[in-house]
Design a protein around this nucleic acid. Structure first.
Lengths: 131, 131
DNA sequence: TATAAGTATGGAGTACAGTCCATGGTCAAG
DNA sequence: CTTGACCATGGACTGTACTCCATACTTATA
């Protein structure tokens, strides 16, 4: 799969993909085609990798952090224990974020209830929620 | 409360607060003190507002979007129905994000289980999760 | 074999979210 | 009434994550 097809598959602009490659986030193979500037060929795992990057971004990781995480992941690829460790730490961060999100939801729902109750004393305060 | 005290209360750098003010995200009052450049005074609701901004940021909103949301909120402030509507739409967006997060967690947990099971056929694929 | 479409590389430019700094005014304590 | 802490404003600067060329080469199609 060449870059434009990959771009469609990953739903990302070609330029963004090239940018990720320069950052080391994607490492496509090189084709024999393309002469002195050989074409880059992408595997279907690269599509998964690209989706993973976008997901991690929405979770608040910077590209630098994502790179670290992914390198760490690759480094322990042949040790199931290490792989599980890396995954667990990602799960932990995700759960933290989820907890914050739940707190925020509680706050907003509490506020709706408070308004529906005719705004009695003691409006819900965000400070009372650990998020 | 003046800006440095507010900065401590909101746990933000003074410069960031000034930046938010120029963006219209915070609207402190003006003191009579300070001569030709009157001091800005902050209420305790501003602390809540600042926390809300940071929360919205972690949820992936840009400052521009946060500004829109908050203006929309203020616009309907005197109509309980409208306020509830705005809150409901925020809740809906938050729930979407939470759903994506849950999908991601399922994926990662599935991967851990798969590894612990000795990596049988059919590795979990991120593409199979709507996140 | 011309020509359009696709590709690689390098570098400039942009948007966003701050962060830093110089200047100058103000206030409160001693 | 001086001095040190605090405040406002404007502008320059930074890092991140793209985004947009210009140039040049390669490939596939008619």
């Amino acid at each position: 799969m060449l870059i434009s097809e990959f771009a469609r598959a990953a739903d990302l602009p070609v330029d963004t993909i090239r940018f990720y490659i320069t950052k080391g986030l994607l490492k496509p193979e090189r084709s024999t085609k393309g002469g002195s500037n050989p074409y880059q060929v992408f595997r279907k795992e690269d599509v998964t990798a690209a989706r993973m990057i976008r997901l991690q971004q929405t979770l608040g990781y910077s590209l630098g952090e994502i790179l670290e995480l992914n390198e760490e992941y690759r480094a322990g690829e042949h040790s199931p224990e290490r792989t599980v460790e890396v995954l667990q730490s990602q799960i932990a961060r995700l759960e933290e974020r989820k907890a914050a999100l739940d707190q925020a939801l509680s706050f907003l729902r509490g506020k709706v209830d408070w308004i529906k109750a005719g705004k009695p004393e003691g409006a819900p305060r965000l400070e009372d929620y650990q998020c």
